[in-house]
Design a protein around this nucleic acid. Structure first.
Lengths: 206, 206
DNA sequence: TTATCTTTGTGAAGAATTTCACAAGCCTGG
DNA sequence: CCAGGCTTGTGAAATTCTTCACAAAGATAA
């Protein structure tokens, strides 16, 4: 299959959200133009993105909201739910954990780890925080698919190495560090400082 | 001046971090190849990125770490510090507020707002949480440059409208919503669900 | 000094992504 | 059934981004 660019995937994810809104608003069908307006892109872009995976629309009418929802869910692999581990029970970890929107979208946090012995054993909404040392064993046993890393930068690589050893195949990293993962493991970074610096650049060059 | 792509700016921001690490490790000079290895890109890319702004290196030797640090700081607008408002004193807001790395990088949180009357008046590390209603007045008075929006999706547009009215020129949005801002206001989105869905896509297509 | 090694800066080539533009298809109203 | 109005799907063009490849220049060693 043709290679799909990262930006195309992001946009699909965005369309999914827009479709859910349209669905909640009771829309039966939606056109590429409407999706484009709401998503801040162009109708040609929307159609090209979708055409990478098939032709889902009806000429003259647009796309069935229900059908397109289902199609994009399938494309993104969201028909199933994913087992997620959260590493780091600090403030950020806590914020992410209680952001229960994840669950609604099929990302199911099944385990939480922290390096701090004082936190280990604490209950977080039905889960017991475990020690980092247990990570490899527990993550394997629970068949965790992906992990969210919310630890300090200097601990991140070590954590990721453990996760990889435990068979995790995707990592979402919040630590401001460039992590190394072997091929076959997907890695995404969220770096807030970097975003702020991007804003700084924009504000600076006017 | 030539248009600079967003990806180039992100990479500059990354080089800045790598240079700080190199500096801390005592390096005097660094080559495009070393930067590329550490940053996960290519040496040609590094040189192209830098050449957008001038020629800072010495052939045969590389770049002076100190000088390049300074140059990139200038390019990104980080010689000055920026006045930042944080909107939303929930878990995420709290995590962001205590992430004091921002301050070290010149992003100075000067005001915190929340819609919940029970939180208003609370002290957060020297700052008093203010009511949303005060936003326009206070943000103008404090000459806030940019804002971090950490409120629920359905409140985000309203918040941003207020911020724009108050003269804010950059917004970093954490709410899962597509926000509208007038031209002249920079907007960046951090959307964790979208990143997770990107991972889901990767794991799904193997 | 000269030969060799390294690394930059940059046109030019190549690849990827986005936009254009239009034929073809479907719907509605008459 | 036909005409008019929309909207898709998609080659082709345009644009943007990345990689190549090499001359030029500084460093080093003898």
């Amino acid at each position: 299959m043709k290679r799909i660019s990262e930006s195309a995937v992001r946009r699909l994810s965005l369309y999914l959200r827009l479709l859910q809104e349209a669905d909640a608003a009771g829309a039966e069908t939606i056109s590429s133009g409407e999706l484009a307006d709401r998503g801040g892109t162009t109708s040609a872009q929307v159609r090209k993105d979708l055409s990478l995976f098939g032709s889902f629309g009806k000429r003259g009418l647009g796309y069935s909201v229900q059908e397109l929802l289902e199609r994009i869910r399938t494309i993104l692999g969201l028909q199933r739910s994913w087992r997620v581990a959260l590493i780091g029970a600090g403030k950020l970890g806590s914020a992410l954990f209680s952001y229960r929107d994840f669950e609604a979208r099929g990302f199911d946090i099944r385990a939480v780890f922290d390096a701090d012995p004082r936190k280990v054993g604490t209950q977080w909404g039905g889960l017991t925080i475990r020690a980092d040392e247990e990570m490899v064993e527990t993550v394997s046993a629970l068949e965790i698919d992906m992990a969210i890393v919310a630890v300090p930068a200097d601990a991140a690589q070590h954590v990721v190495d453990r996760l990889v050893k435990a068979g995790v195949r995707g990592v979402l990293n919040f630590a401001p560090a460039r992590l190394k993962v072997p091929p076959g493991v997907a890695l995404k970074n969220v770096d807030v400082t970097l975003e702020l610096e991007g804003l700084s650049f924009s504000l600076n060059s006017r």
